[in-house]
């Protein structure tokens, strides 16, 4: 009797989650199967969930290099931008966090507090001048426009610095007694121990950069140079009448982050609570 009572909430929870999971999964499955439908079939036959005839023409016509919608090109643009952006963030953030968390210098706390305070400023205000600065650097329509400005963020420094608090300062001191300087302590002692949090920073920098939408749509108008998010917007404008083709494009665009999620799910799920725990 007691067992049954205990399992009742679990059953309710299960049914609720199942219903919601169906709502969550159906668009993806529908998108996937639709991307294998022929354009004619989709438009002429009434509503059918599965394709009558499975075709790959949507993918092949998108992936064949054409000048007006070079999807493969966009894909690699995004890849380069996201990877380099992530590396840049890792370097800049770990160095800064090390200095604010471990080294002593005049004005350190004031400077760090100032940086924290700027997080309150809403980013929309800087959009227009940021374009002007990027333009005067000659970066419009170059990868740099999408790689560098995003590394200005302060939150990651905060996150890594908080994590560093849990690394005993005795490690540094021991190394210092052995004659290590700040650089050696950073590279040999602290950096290896920061791996879990840097993993989190890397994953979020990569996905954030891969999925960024507004900024790339401003700094890229050269079709050859744009990342895939802007490319999809362009694609949507050109092929409104060919939804099955659009669907194939959208699915290609989510492949990298999807694969990343399959392999690094644990880190993604841990990281959210990590970043909230720090703040909350």
């Amino acid at each position: 009797m007691k067992n049954k009572l205990l399992s009742f909430p679990k059953l309710v929870a299960f049914l609720f989650l199942l219903l919601m999971a169906i709502i969550w999964v159906v668009p993806l499955i529908w998108g996937l199967v639709t991307s294998f439908k022929g354009d004619m079939e989709f438009k002429t036959i009434g509503f059918k969930f599965l394709p009558v005839e499975w075709v790959t023409t949507n993918y092949t016509s998108l992936l064949v290099d054409n000048d007006s919608t070079p999807l493969l090109h966009w894909f690699f643009n995004s890849l380069i931008i996201s990877v380099v952006h992530t590396l840049l963030v890792l370097i800049v953030v770990s160095m800064a966090a090390f200095a604010y968390g471990r080294l002593h210098f005049k004005g350190r706390n004031a400077l760090f507090l100032f940086l924290m305070a700027t997080m309150m400023f809403p980013g929309v205000v800087n959009l227009i001048p940021l374009y002007k600065i990027v333009d005067s650097l000659g970066w419009v329509n170059t990868y740099w426009a999408a790689i560098v400005p995003g590394a200005a963020g302060v939150f990651n420094i905060f996150l890594v610095r908080q994590f560093m608090v849990n690394i005993p300062i005795e490690f540094d001191e021991a190394a210092r007694i052995d004659g290590a300087g700040d650089f050696q302590i950073f590279f040999r002692v602290v950096l290896p121990l920061l791996r879990p949090i840097l993993m989190v920073v890397a994953l979020f920098s990569f996905t954030g950069s891969w999925n960024d939408f507004l900024w790339p749509s401003i700094v890229f108008n050269d079709i050859e140079k744009m990342p895939i998010t802007s490319g999809l917007q362009l694609l949507q404008g050109m092929y409104t009448a060919q939804p099955t083709l659009l669907m194939a494009g959208a699915l290609i665009a989510i492949v990298p982050t999807f694969i990343l999620y399959l392999f690094a799910q644990k880190y993604f799920l841990q990281s959210m609570s990590l970043s909230a725990g720090v703040k909350g």
Binding site: F213, Q236, A250, A253
Partner: peptide, 8 residues
């Protein structure tokens, strides 16, 4: 990305 989500 939001553009893929919106297309779907």
């Amino acid at each position: 990305s939001i553009s893929a989500v919106v297309i779907i």
